[in-house]
Nucleic acid binder design. Structure first.
Lengths: 234, 234
DNA sequence: GATGATTTGTACGTATGTATA
DNA sequence: ATATACATACGTACAAATCAT
C-alpha cells in the first residue's frame, strides 16, 4: 500500500525508498498529525539510518504533496484546510466519475464480472457492519473501475489522489448510517454500468463521492479541528 | 515556467530547487532526449554544485514522472511509449474538459473577460504565424480555464499533467494547418462558455485536445521515434 | 568469467541560517 | 536586542554495486 509511481517499485532495497514507503504509510494512517514537525535526525534514528536517505525521502514526499518543506526551517506534515479537502474531494469525484464513464464502455466481460463480485462481497461486509473489511473492498471496487478505463495513466492519477485522501476517507466511513448509504450508491452505480449507461454511471459516482465529502465536512464542523494548528497567538 | 508544487515555491535559494527547476525546463524543452542517462557528477559539474543537491533534484523529478530511477543504475530521462503519450493526452483532454465545464459556471466576469482578451491575442499571433507567441498565449488560455474552476487542487493537477506533456505538445503545434485549426477549436470553446453551456464547452475542449493528440501521433508514425531506445539487440 | 574502472548509495563533517533564552 | 543553541543545506569521503574490458 504505497504508491502509483510508474516503474521503480520493483526492487526496494534502497534505504531512502524504504523510508519513503514507511513514511507514506505512516502519513496515510494519520500516525503523524498535520503540522507536526518531521525532524531529520529523529527520523534517521527511528529507521536506523543516517540523515541523507531521510532527506531524500522527505523531498520526494514533498513533491507528492504529503509533506510541506520550509527551506532551512524543516519539514512538517502537510497542513491541510477544510477548503482544500473539499477541493480534493471534488477533484476525486470528477475524476472517478470520468473513470466510471470510460470503464462502462471499456471493461472486458471478465473485468465487469469481477467488479460485480467485489460489489457483492462489499454488500456482505456492510451487512455485518465490518467497517475494515468494507473499507478494503471499497478500495478494490474503485480500483477495478480505474483499471477498467484501460488508461493506465489515468488510473495512476486516480490512485494517487485517492491515496492522498486516505487518512480523511476512513474517518468519514465510520459515521452512523454512512456505510449503508455508501452501499446504496454503489448499487445504483453498478446498475448503470450493467445497463451500459456511462453518463449515468458518472453521475452516480460523482454523487457518491460528494456525499462522502459532505459527511466528512459535517463531521469536522461538529467541533473537531483538522490540523493541529501551531500558528502563534495573534 | 516551473511547477505546480503547492507552497515552497516562494524562496528559491536552495541549490537543489534551482537545479530541479533548471532540469525541469531542460526536460520540457527536449534538451535531454528520452532514455538519455543523467549522470550525477556530470550534472553537478554543469550546475557548479556537488552531487548531493543533484541527487535530491533527480529524486523529486522521478516522483513527478519526468525521470526514471533505476536503483544503483542511475537516472535516465523518462522513456515514454506512444501508447503512454496517447493515454496522457486522453487524460489531459478529459481533465481539461472538466475544467472547461466547471469554469463555465464559476468564472467571475473579470476572469471571463480576461479569457476573451487572451483568446483575441492568440488569434493575432496565429494570423502572423508566430508559433512561439501562440504557444505562450495558448498556455495562458488553458491556465485561465484551470483557475476559472476555482478549485486550486484541480488546477494544480491539470498544470502538472500539462507540464509533463510539454515537450510533445510543441512538436505537434508546428504541423502545417494545425495552428489554424487550433484557433478554430478555441473559437467554438469560447462561444460555448459565453453561452454558459458548460457541457458543450467540455465537448469542444475534449475535441480540441484529442485533435492535438491525433496530429502528434500521425507526426510520429511518419517515421520518427519517440524514445532513443537503448535496449540491447534481441 | 574475472578484474579494474566508474558510479551510485550512505555516512559524516561543517557552515549558514533560524529559533530561543 | 544579543547571544546561544540547534537544525538544515551542502560538500566530501568511503563502501558497495554495476559496467566495461
Amino acid at each position: 500500500m504505497t504508491g502509483a509511481q510508474p516503474a521503480n517499485d520493483a526492487s526496494v532495497d534502497l534505504l531512502s525508498d524504504r523510508i519513503r514507503n514507511a513514511l507514506t504509510d505512516a502519513l496515510a494512517n494519520g500516525e503523524f498529525k498535520p503540522g507536526a514537525a518531521l525532524d531529520e535526525q529523529a527520523l534517521a534514528d527511528r529507521y536506523g539510518a543516517s540523515r541523507t536517505p531521510v532527506r531524500e525521502a522527505l523531498r520526494q514526499l514533498a513533491v507528492a504533496g504529503l509533506v510541506e518543506l520550509r527551506p532551512r526551517r524543516g519539514a512538517v506534515v502537510a497542513r491541510i484546510t477544510i477548503d482544500r479537502i473539499m477541493e480534493m474531494f471534488e477533484c476525486t469525484a470528477e475524476i472517478e466519475a470520468l473513470c466510471a464513464r470510460l470503464a462502462t464502455h471499456r471493461m472486458t466481460p471478465i473485468e465487469r464480472s469481477n467488479l460485480l463480485r467485489i460489489h457483492g462481497q462489499a454488500n456482505e461486509a456492510a451487512r455485518s457492519a465490518d467497517v475494515d473489511r468494507y473499507d478494503a473492498l471499497n478500495r478494490q471496487f474503485h480500483e477495478a473501475l480505474y483499471y477498467g478505463t484501460h488508461n493506465q495513466f489515468l488510473a495512476e492519477q486516480a490512485m494517487t489522489i485517492r491515496e492522498r485522501l486516505g487518512a480523511y476517507r476512513r474517518t468519514q466511513l465510520r459515521q452512523v448510517g454512512r456505510l449503508g448509504r455508501s452501499i446504496g450508491e454503489h448499487d445504483e452505480l453498478v446498475l448503470a454500468i450493467s445497463r451500459g449507461d456511462g453518463e449515468d454511471a458518472a453521475k452516480w459516482m460523482r454523487a457518491h463521492l460528494l456525499n462522502a465529502s459532505s459527511a466528512l465536512i459535517e463531521f469536522f464542523e461538529d467541533g473537531r479541528q483538522i490540523a493541529a494548528s501551531d500558528s502563534p497567538a495573534p
